[in-house]
Amino acid sequence: MNIKVLFFGILEEIASTHEIIFSDIHDIKALEKILNNQFPDLTRYKYLISVNHEIVKNNALLKDKDEIALLPPFAGG
């Protein structure tokens, strides 16, 4: 299974990319662990996580083709 992870705002700079495809990650907790290892600076920032455009507050199971996004605090208006 493949999932797509998108980075926005300042987090796109931390990851130096907008998008990464990962395979065989089955929940948000596991994904966060991998991201924090790969990009240790992420732990310094506040962000929300969305799965297929819906914010998820707790751990959630992931399935093939899910689109996960790391969303720093919104600043529209």
Binding site: G9, L71, P72, F74, A75, G76, G77
Partner: peptide, 27 residues
């Protein structure tokens, strides 16, 4: 509506300065 847009819509803003540096805007 304006308050909800600021709180719930995934939009970000880079504040650009004259010397070509920038700062990520915080609401």
């Amino acid at each position: 509506t304006v308050n909800l847009i600021k709180d719930e819509v995934p939009i970000w803003g880079k504040e650009l300065f004259d010397d070509n540096t920038y700062n990520w805007k915080e609401n």
